[in-house]
């Protein structure tokens, strides 16, 4: 027998490294890495919104833009592959200006009150979302509550496409939601805006998990926030393994007052990549110590 098979992966070809300059410092990253990866390797903190490590970069928010020598425009670091010899500036006046403006644009039309990181970055870049006149257009829609599992608050939606990707071919392949309409009127929507229970939605909650602004929110969180009892600083997060089948999905149980308030999965766990199914995401109510485990019949 002459066949030789690597025990770990089909393709373990030697990695090619590329050298790229980030703010004057040379950084070596493997081929295929992005400029953002290189920024991270260089220890440069970069604001992102539509980027997630477990989704394909759509580079729609343009918050992570950096300046590259030889490029007429700024480039999105999240999706631009690093190439040998690139010279990148992450803190030039142009970069700071564009990031500030993106944050201002978002702040001028969207409720970012529950997008903690954006608030910090807005302060950092000096974004002033109030300078757009007395009544800049915004979405102004009531919160959509159509079931007991999660809610949709379009006033908080920044149209980052993450939920669409998680529902679509980055994870769930259900495609219950898509972007509809165009321009400022574009919305994340089911077909003809039918309700989620009527749609193809299978309630995996993966859209909720990737939402950066709480526009999609688990009902448990929404209810606790409504009564002022949502206290994330007190949450204990414990990683365990889902019991609903033999796949071995890791669950992060977010617990407040010995009560489970939310379930997520770690993005860097290679079984789930952060994605779960309806049972893993929502099937824990029976664990709630506050609920009596009485007869099952």
């Amino acid at each position: 027998m002459t066949a030789v098979y690597n025990n770990n992966t089909a393709d373990a070809s030697a990695e090619v490294a590329v050298t790229i300059s980030i703010d004057g410092a040379d950084v070596i990253v493997p081929e295929g890495a992005t400029v953002l990866d290189a920024c991270n390797a260089a220890g440069v903190d970069t604001p992102t919104l539509c980027y997630a490590e477990n989704l394909t970069a759509v580079n729609a928010c343009r918050l992570c833009v950096v300046e590259m020598d030889g490029s007429r425009t700024l480039i999105p670091s999240c999706s631009r592959p690093a190439e040998d010899g690139m010279v990148i500036k992450t803190d030039s006046e142009r970069v700071r200006h564009s990031r500030k403006m993106v944050l201002e644009f978002l702040g001028s039309g969207v409720d970012l009150s529950q997008a903690d990181e954006l608030g910090t970055w807005s302060e950092f870049y000096g974004a002033d979302a109030d300078r757009y006149g007395p009544a800049p257009a915004r979405i102004n829609e009531p919160v959509k509550i159509q079931d007991d599992l999660y809610i949709r608050d379009y006033d908080k939606c920044v149209l980052c496409y993450k939920c669409v990707e998680a529902c679509g071919d980055d994870a769930q392949h259900t495609f219950a939601i898509s972007v509809s309409g165009r321009g400022f009127d574009a919305r994340i929507s089911t077909e003809f805006d039918i309700t989620l229970p009527d749609s193809a939605c299978v309630y995996c909650g993966n859209c909720v998990a990737v939402c950066p602004t709480n526009a999609l929110q688990f009902k448990t969180e929404f209810d606790l926030r409504t009564v002022g009892e949502w206290r994330p600083e007190e949450h204990e997060v414990t990683t365990t393994v889902c019991s609903y089948c033999g796949v071995g999905c890791n669950l992060e149980m977010h617990v407040q007052d010995n009560t489970i308030v939310k379930v997520t999965s770690p993005n860097d766990h290679d079984v789930t990549s952060g994605h779960l199914c309806i049972k893993g995401r929502f099937g824990w109510q029976y664990v709630q110590p506050t609920i009596e485990r009485g007869p099952t019949t």
Partner: peptide, 12 residues
Amino acid sequence: TGVQSGGFNSPI
């Protein structure tokens, strides 16, 4: 047999 999954209100 649904003793666990019956605990949550699935819309589907």
